[in-house]
Every structure is written in C-alpha cells, then in structure tokens.
Design a protein around this nucleic acid. Structure first.
Length: 237
DNA sequence: GTCCCGTACT
DNA sequence: AGTACGGGAC
C-alpha cells in the first residue's frame, strides 16, 4: 500500500497558519505600512478604557467619519463611566442620535452602570469578564484588551476577516471560517505589539485591502498574497 | 446558525 | 426600491 506520508497537514484539517516567512513578512510589511500611512484617529491618542469602549461601540455600527464628531461630543457630555452611569438612558440615547441602533447606547449605559457598581469604575481587562457585559462581544473584548490594556489579544471584524482570508486562505466562504481566522489573527500578532498590529490591520483593510476594488497595485503583501491579483467575484446563482 | 436595524450602496 | 452590511444576542 502506498502509505506515503509527508509532513504536511492533512487536507481535512484545513490549517491556514502561514509558514514563518510569510508570517514575518506580513508583520513587518504591515507595521511599516502603518507607520507610513496609518490614520490619526482620536481614540488612538488615549489609553483610557472608557474612551476606547465608547469608540468601539460607536464603530460597531458606523463608519469612522461619522463617529469622530459624535465620539467627541459624547465624551464631552459624559467624561467618565460615573457620568454616563448617572445619566438617564433617555438622555444618553438623545446624545447618541443620529447614530442609530439605539439598543447600543442602552447597552453602553448598562456597561457603565455595571462598571461603576461591580468594578469600582474601572473596566476589567480580563476577557471573560469583558464578555460578560451585554454589548461586548468577542471583537470588542479583543479591541479593549489590545487598545486599552496593551495586551496581545486578537481581534476579528469584517476588515480583519477580509484581509486574512485574502492573504492567507483565498478559498471558501470567509465568514464560515471564523474559528480558523481567529487563530490566525492571534498567531500573527508580533509579541508585545498587539496594539499597533491590530490598529494596522484595521487601517490596512479600510484603506488598501478594501471590500470592493482593493488597491492591489500599492499593496505591500502582493508578492505572497494568495488572492493577488484580485479579480471581482462573479455572482453565484 | 438567525435576527436585529439604520445606513449606504445598487 | 431593494438589499447587503455587521457585531452582538440568542
């Protein structure tokens, strides 16, 4: 019998972890690109977990351009967890307007109340505790841990799903591979650089590896990207 | 996995 | 006008 067995993983395992050189190239090129082209956003000038939380909840539903002025206004009106917790929910929703998805300001208010009551006004950095809040899911927990607490915690939002799937996977439905993409997101973080790496990959997805018409010609990953050169997908019947 | 719900595309 | 989107709840 041809019991030929190489050291490669079996197909059934579908592991997309990149080889070391692709991983290093991705890390180095991404951070270099970020240093040259990264956006200067208001929530990147703070490490206050409350500010980070507000920005992330706003960004869950709304694009950066619309979030920026509301982020400033919201924090001016509710400068701390305590201020937010004390405010009537109706006022919070008014301040939130017109961002929409009004269950989110309710949940943000709830997070503030719980943070004041149960955590002495300090947002926890522990993943499980963060996930226990209504309104904080896996993405937002990772964002808070990396952006507010400088931990090497992975994130996976649609930007990151798209980038990682294109560069390292390039087959199948990206959304159906979240488990593997979470592992990839974690494996790619250079030690101690979770903050920059995560910010960088989000900017990269928003500015280069865009959903429609990505800027492949400018892309620093094109030499090893599994999707390069990108061609628009045809509709499946 | 499905639903949510305002936005931003066709 | 129709619909794809998106992080979270369930």
């Amino acid at each position: 019998m041809p019991g030929r067995r190489t050291s490669n993983k079996k197909k059934s395992q579908k592991v997309a972890l990149p080889d070391l050189s692709a991983k290093r190239r991705f890390q180095q090129r991404l951070l270099k690109w970020y240093g040259e082209h990264g956006r200067d956003l208001p929530w990147r000038k703070t490490s206050d977990p409350y500010h980070i939380l507000v920005s992330e909840v706003m960004l869950q539903q709304t694009q950066v351009d619309r979030v920026i002025p509301k982020y400033r206004e919201f924090l001016e009106r509710y400068p701390s967890f305590e201020d937010l917790a004390e405010a009537p929910v109706a006022d919070v929703k008014k301040t939130w307007y017109p961002l929409g998805y009004n269950v989110r300001p309710e949940r943000l208010h709830g997070i503030a109340c719980e943070t004041v009551e149960r955590y002495g006004g300090k947002l926890p950095s522990d993943a499980e505790e963060l996930l226990s809040f209504k309104g904080i899911g896996r993405y937002t927990a990772g964002a808070i841990r990396s952006f507010a607490f400088n931990e090497d915690a992975p994130i996976l939002d649609t930007n990151v799903i798209r980038v990682l799937h294109r560069v390292f996977v390039a087959e199948g439905d990206p959304k159906a591979q979240k488990t593997m993409l979470w592992e990839l997101s974690e494996a790619l973080i250079p030690p101690k650089k979770g903050y920059d790496f995560n910010q960088a990959i989000m900017d990269f997805g928003a500015m280069v590896c865009t959903a429609r018409d990505p800027y492949c010609l400018l892309c620093p990953m094109k030499s090893f990207c599994k999707t390069y050169p990108f061609s628009p997908m045809e509709r499946r019947s």
